[in-house]
Simulated assay, not measured.
Amino acid sequence: MKPEFENIDLIKTGKRFEIEVNGYAAFIDYREMGHQIALVHTEADPELAGTGAAAAAVVEKTLHYIEDNGKKLLPFCPYVFAYIKKNPDWKRIVDERFDGYDKL
């Protein structure tokens, strides 16, 4: 994560994990089911395009949240799936029953 994103707080609403950067948002839509959190869609405001890090920062902060809260991840979002594939140490929080687990 780029240093400029490290001190930005992760905000959890009823359906999103979100960070705000210079008044713009990067977020992940999620569903929470007991001990699992399904991440379904990652998006950033167009004004954050080109930073290359806002989406990665919200993903990393969300993964830390999931781990810190003893939850298991279901990475349905293609961006999150690719992020974990690129950073395989995060596979530790993916639920082993996830359909694409063996592809990570």
Rank of each mutant, 00 (worst) to 15 (best):
Y83E: 02
D68Y: 08
K71S: 03
Y83H: 11
P75R: 06
F76D: 07
C77M: 09
N69R: 13
N87I: 06
Y83N: 02
A82N: 15
K61M: 04
K71E: 00
I84W: 01
Y65F: 12
T62A: 12
N69K: 12
G70M: 13
P88C: 06
F76S: 08
K61Q: 04
Y79P: 11
P75Y: 03
D68T: 12
C77L: 08
L63E: 06
H64N: 15
Y79A: 10
L63G: 07
N69A: 11
P75C: 08
F76M: 08
F81G: 10
V80M: 08
L63V: 09
I84A: 03
L73G: 01
N87G: 05
H64D: 14
G70P: 11
K71Q: 02
K85M: 11
C77Y: 10
Y79K: 10
K86D: 08
K85D: 09
A82R: 15
D89Q: 14
E67F: 13
N87W: 03
W90Y: 06
L63D: 05
G70N: 15
P88E: 06
D68M: 07
E67K: 15
I66Y: 01
P88H: 04
D89M: 12
Y83V: 02
K85E: 11
I84D: 02
P75K: 04
L73N: 01
H64G: 09
P78A: 08
F81K: 13
P88V: 05
D89S: 14
K91M: 03
K86G: 05
K91R: 12
Y65C: 05
D89E: 15
F76L: 12
K85A: 08
F76R: 04
D89W: 04
V80A: 05
K72I: 12
Y83D: 04
G70E: 11
N87E: 11
D89A: 14
P78F: 08
P75W: 05
K71I: 00
L63Q: 09
H64M: 14
Y83R: 02
K85H: 13
V80C: 03
W90E: 01
V80P: 04
L63R: 07
K61R: 05
K71W: 02
D89N: 14
P78L: 06
G70F: 06
Y65R: 09
K85L: 10
P78V: 04
L73D: 00
D68P: 10
T62W: 07
N69P: 13
K71M: 03
V80F: 05
A82M: 13
C77E: 13
V80T: 09
A82T: 15
Y83T: 01
D89K: 13
K61L: 05
I66P: 00
L73C: 02
W90P: 00
Y79Q: 11
D68A: 13
D89V: 13
K61C: 03
A82S: 13
A82C: 10
T62V: 06
W90R: 00
L63I: 09
P88T: 11
Y65S: 07
K72W: 15
A82V: 07
Y65A: 10
I66M: 01
